[in-house]
Amino acid sequence: MTGTVRISTCGRALLKIFYNRIEISLPSFVLRWIAAWSLGGLMVLTIHPAFADESVDLGDIRIEAATATPTAKGGRSRVRFQITNNSRTDLHLLGISTPVAAKTELVARVGSENTSVLQSIGIPSEETLDLTTSHLHYEIYPLEKVLQSGDNFPITLHFRGWSKSTLVHVH
């Protein structure tokens, strides 16, 4: 017994060569083996704490991959996340706050060594602001407590005219 796997592609080069379809015939036990390993991999991704960075929908706003670096009490931790603005209006992020630190700063890396602190940042309609890069992130300091891998803590995102809270995962 065999099964068929069909892979569709939109790539122009592959479209010319394979006419938008590749067919591979495999014995059914191989297809079951692939399915079992794929499901097992998904379960590991779901259970592993490094993948606990779930997305949070806050109406038309989506917060994804909210993480912080482990840091000693009194130190600085980097907080990273993505904000997707699915609304029809532009947003203006004024800052964040958290009970685990007294101060927060939006840090932008300018060039290879220089940094600048931004007071706020805009998020255009239907766009994503990526604060997970090495160029742009929040720093929270001085920490009121130790942040260890596996910990969670709340942050509040302050937009012009309103605020929303979400959890940050430390790892």
Rank of each mutant, 00 (worst) to 15 (best):
A52Y: 07
A52M: 02
A52S: 15
D53M: 05
D53N: 15
S55V: 01
V56W: 00
D57L: 11
L58A: 07
G59I: 04
D60Y: 14
I61K: 01
R62D: 00
R62G: 03
I63C: 04
I63K: 06
A65M: 03
A65E: 15
T67W: 03
T69H: 08
T71G: 04
A72H: 14
G74V: 12
G75E: 09
S77A: 15
R78L: 11
V79C: 05
T84P: 01
T84E: 13
T84K: 05
T89K: 06
L91K: 06
H92M: 13
L93T: 05
L94E: 15
I96C: 04
T98Y: 04
P99I: 13
A101T: 09
A101R: 11
A101N: 04
A102K: 14
A102I: 10
L106E: 05
L106A: 08
V107Y: 13
R109M: 07
G111D: 02
S112E: 09
S112Y: 02
T115L: 04
L118E: 09
L118Q: 10
Q119I: 07
I121A: 12
I121D: 14
I121M: 12
I121K: 07
G122I: 07
I123S: 06
I123M: 10
P124A: 14
S125D: 04
E127P: 05
T128Y: 10
T128D: 10
L129D: 01
L131S: 06
L131R: 07
T132C: 14
H137V: 09
I140R: 04
I140V: 15
I140Y: 06
I140S: 02
E144K: 11
K145M: 02
K145D: 00
